[in-house]
Nucleic acid binder design. Structure first.
Lengths: 212, 212
DNA sequence: CAAAATATTGAACATTGCTCAATTTGTCAA
DNA sequence: TTGACAAATTGAGCAATGTTCAATATTTTG
């Protein structure tokens, strides 16, 4: 009975290991170019398996995309946690970390757009997505709460999240700009978002003295 | 000579008329479902022409998408102008108008995401896009300027634009939510964005009295 | 070790964006 | 009106895509 369970466990582990092999191969390909232009045949070749095997582990490519996306969401959540050993990170820090992560992992924000925009997603996929996005949102909620001036903290956190994603959507891959320029501009905008949402607002503090 | 020019002019007009026929047919299809799932064959059938003819007017589907997108951008710019007969519209009004337009024209924000995310765009396409997006951004700049508290008005306008787009990217088609719920939520977030970016901030004015 | 269960494979299929030779339509001087 | 030239239209055909599934290979089990 125990041996049986062990074997089952091992088999599951093996199966997971092979899934991870495919996942990693796909992730590397996505990091190299627009994930939407990566084909099943490419992934199969990179993972050293066949087309059919991939469909043995994922019912379709969307499921594979989702798995990669969830991995990223968990990673950025971990990063935020690592930086908040003593209390929640301040807004400026959080915004900077998030936008930097997006710059370094274009696939993540590309997929965010892909899922939010197109979205033929199964109920199960939706559930998995919500389960992983909630912890991320919780970190943002904490940072917003720490500002201590918003009545509806969760709603404000949603707004902040939107603003940060919007920065990337609006300016990443902005035609004709280099990657370095995009990084500089988006980081700058993220800083401005942090200032506007945070309570220590130089702009607001100068109110009516500089301009009116 | 004159007659010749007239005829040429007429022919150009006719050609434009046929292009518009295709454009409108495509636009209607895009409004019915995710534009990425609309095929050339469908468009041809809807426009009452053949596949080949479509490629006679647009070198590829991306060009057609872009043309639709530009039409929307011009439309929302016109809407903003119509509402600002006496001075630039206040931030709250502008945010509400923009987010409402996005809710009513999913294709527009879908394509925004599509172009910004994927972006294999020709130099000419990029130029056309910039030319149409600038006037829209100018309206936002005006509204931000009217607030009168930001040193870098253009940068702040970019941030506001990002925030508004981010709202839709993050919550439009949010899985499991009805269209009405999404509209309510996004309009609410847009209102919050307006309050945060605007100078009449009830939240900020209550600072330190309610929470600390 | 054979049989039964499970996993892997890639040829085959339907569908896609796009091309281009053939055909239709339009133009205009004679 | 005619007929020759130009321009626009057409859709069968091509290469590439995501996905399926019968055949094959591997692993597990009694």
């Amino acid at each position: 009975m125990v041996a049986q369970n062990k074997l089952v466990g091992l088999k599951l582990q093996e199966k997971d290991a092979r899934r991870k092999l495919i996942l990693d191969a796909a992730g590397q390909l996505f990091a190299q170019k627009d994930f939407r232009s990566v084909t099943v045949r490419e992934i199969a070749k990179a993972a050293g398996t066949s087309i059919g095997t991939i469909y043995n582990y994922y019912t379709n490519l969307t499921e594979l995309f989702l798995d990669i996306f969830l991995g990223h969401a968990e990673e950025i959540t971990r990063i935020l946690d690592a930086e908040s050993s003593n209390g929640p990170p301040d807004l400026k820090h959080l915004c900077s970390l998030y936008i930097t992560y997006l710059n370094d992992n274009m696939t993540f924000y590309q997929m965010m757009g892909h899922f939010m925009l197109g979205g033929e997603m199964s109920a199960e996929a939706t559930h998995k997505l919500n389960k992983v996005m909630k912890p991320l949102m919780d970190r943002i909620v904490n940072a917003v709460e720490a500002v201590g001036i918003y009545p509806d903290v969760r709603l404000t956190a949603h707004t902040l999240f939107s603003a940060l994603n919007g920065i990337m959507i609006s300016y990443a891959r902005y035609p004709g700009r280099s990657q370095a320029e995009i990084r500089r501009h988006t980081v700058r905008l993220a800083g401005l978002v942090a200032e506007i949402f945070g309570k220590d607002l130089p702009y607001y503090n100068q109110r009516r003295t500089d301009f009116l």
